[in-house]
Design a protein around this nucleic acid. Sequence first.
DNA 1: GCAAAAGTGTTTTCATTACACCCATGT
DNA 2: ACATGGGTGTAATGAAAACACTTTTGC
Lengths: 229, 229
Amino acid sequence: MPFQDDFYKSAFSVDNVIFGFDGNNLKVLLIKRKHDPFAGYWALPGDIVQPDQDLDEGALQVLEKLTGIKDVYLEQVHTFGKVNRHPRGRVITIAYYSLIKIGEEDIRPSSFADKVEWKEIRAIESLAFDHLDIVNTCLSRLRRNVKYRPIGFELLPKKFTLTELQNLYESILEKELDKRNFRKKILSMNVLKTHNELQKGVAHRPAKLYSFDAYKYEAAKESGFVFEL
Amino acid sequence: MPFQDDFYKSAFSVDNVIFGFDGNNLKVLLIKRKHDPFAGYWALPGDIVQPDQDLDEGALQVLEKLTGIKDVYLEQVHTFGKVNRHPRGRVITIAYYSLIKIGEEDIRPSSFADKVEWKEIRAIESLAFDHLDIVNTCLSRLRRNVKYRPIGFELLPKKFTLTELQNLYESILEKELDKRNFRKKILSMNVLKTHNELQKGVAHRPAKLYSFDAYKYEAAKESGFVFEL
DNA sequence: GCAAAAGTGTTTTCATTACACCCATGT
DNA sequence: ACATGGGTGTAATGAAAACACTTTTGC
């Protein structure tokens, strides 16, 4: 019996802002709540953390239950702890975001959710609890991180074209980039692997396919290279 | 009675990495624990968060109890939640850092601490619990933030010389800076107020005194200026 | 007058930006 | 043959880096 039982009772949960990219827009996976509080509202997938469960584990499990995906980029962002953020008691929540490749998931609505849907980030207007705050905080964090860490690739299929990569950055940063400068910069970093393979079935000159080369990246990092876009 | 009572019991605390600068070195305020667990160990000041208390409030209160200081720069950094991080039960802790001006505090050892001392950051080798991790995480965060936000000033007296400011940045970033370039850059930002007042009692040419001008900074920010060092 | 830190500009170097045309494919 | 996006280089601009001497004070 832990010592704090007599002293203090409370709960903590994790909420996970799951980002995906469909080629045009940045999206977030939301659930429609079945039960009160906030029955019928869209909300972030999340859950109470078990006493024998690490926080990261909790966040990963939320994602796995919902999508079947196990290996995933996950990052803790912020802990939301306003006294009245949960109408039924004191519950603080540790917010994470994760990045997944849309299409690889196998969505399974759960006991507590009616529906699960990818929602365009710009179209999200209200959510249960303080989840809109959480989404916005995670989005700003993603925007900052994507410039300084090679994580954009987590949102694309393993093989992608440079234009796809550029579109991704443009959606996240909400800013147009110059094609030639973008390609020059990303290729000069030397963290991509070129495949001898082209796009198929497109009504124009097919693009070369690339993938992120984690090995090259680690090697470059060793010798002082810093990813920066 | 909150709904989670039957379901799950746990506690959460805040720990505060209180940074100060003595003119030469970056320091952290540590307490020496009186009681088990970790009696006799140096540790971060922290406390359990009360059920009716916001997290930020909890972190501020820890600082106020210890130093008497109320208005302070405070930032949440990360939540540490390993299952076994606390030997007596499941306690997750939300880590904050704050920046204070050394000398303005009035330290009062509390019921749970024998001693309170400023320790040089480089000299800290082991701490109670996972507090060394927490210090390191907060230090990296401070290093990043200090480059992009005008927060260095929080560690200096209201009026300071440019050399003091440069020394501060050099200690935090652990990197030497060029005097002329530093001055050029910081002055060109136009966020400092020049006083018609000089340093006193120094055995060399006395330096001009400056202070951070929050008003100028806010105005500049409005028109798109971004602080970056 | 000597020691100690304050204060001050110019040149070089490098990274970022801006910009327009030909190429390969499907229909 | 035409529509569509793929792919490519160079010049101009601006920011960062490198660098050394004179000034003012206390002792």
